[in-house]
Amino acid sequence: MTDAKPPKPATKGGLNTEIQSRIGHQLRAMYDDVVRQGVPDRFAELIRQLDSQDAAARVAEGSKKDGRD
């Protein structure tokens, strides 16, 4: 005889723990693949441009508040 426990029954309309665990492992594997790919150079460049525009806008807004306009 084995000591293996049967999977817990699913709650009404839910999934049992074994199925939830398998789904979790597969999602983690897929997510890890996406993370390893990194950000494409074009996206990184666009983010840098947006950040510099945002910083410039904050500096301009700060100078208006200080009366340096």
Results as ranks from 00 to 15, higher is better:
M1K: 12
T2W: 01
T2E: 09
T2L: 10
T2V: 12
D3M: 10
D3L: 13
A4T: 07
A4V: 09
K5L: 08
K5M: 12
P6E: 12
P6H: 03
P7W: 01
P7S: 04
P7G: 06
P7Q: 02
K8H: 06
K8I: 05
K8S: 10
K8E: 09
K8G: 07
P9E: 13
P9I: 02
P9K: 10
A10I: 07
A10R: 05
K12H: 12
K12A: 13
K12D: 14
G13H: 06
G13F: 00
G13M: 11
G14P: 02
G14M: 03
N16L: 01
N16Q: 00
T17Q: 15
T17K: 13
E18I: 01
E18F: 00
Q20W: 01
R22K: 15
R22P: 00
I23C: 03
H25P: 02
H25E: 14
L27S: 08
L27H: 06
R28Y: 04
R28K: 13
A29V: 05
Y31S: 08
Y31N: 08
Y31F: 10
Y31G: 01
Y31I: 13
Y31V: 09
D32W: 02
D32C: 02
D32G: 02
D33N: 11
D33M: 05
V35N: 03
V35I: 07
R36S: 13
R36Y: 06
Q37E: 14
Q37N: 05
Q37P: 03
G38R: 01
G38I: 03
G38K: 04
P40A: 15
D41S: 14
R42E: 15
R42I: 11
R42D: 15
F43K: 06
F43D: 07
A44M: 11
E45C: 03
L46H: 05
L46E: 09
I47D: 02
R48L: 00
Q49Y: 04
Q49V: 00
L50K: 10
D51W: 02
D51H: 05
S52Y: 02
S52E: 15
S52W: 06
S52K: 12
S52H: 04
Q53L: 05
Q53T: 07
Q53Y: 03
Q53E: 12
D54P: 01
D54M: 12
A55I: 12
A55T: 11
A56V: 03
A56N: 06
A56G: 04
A56P: 00
A56K: 10
A57L: 14
R58D: 08
E61Q: 09
E61D: 12
K65Q: 08
D66G: 09
D66H: 10
D66E: 15
D66T: 09
G67V: 11
G67L: 13
G67R: 14
G67H: 13
R68L: 15
R68G: 08
R68C: 12
D69W: 03
D69F: 11
D69Y: 10
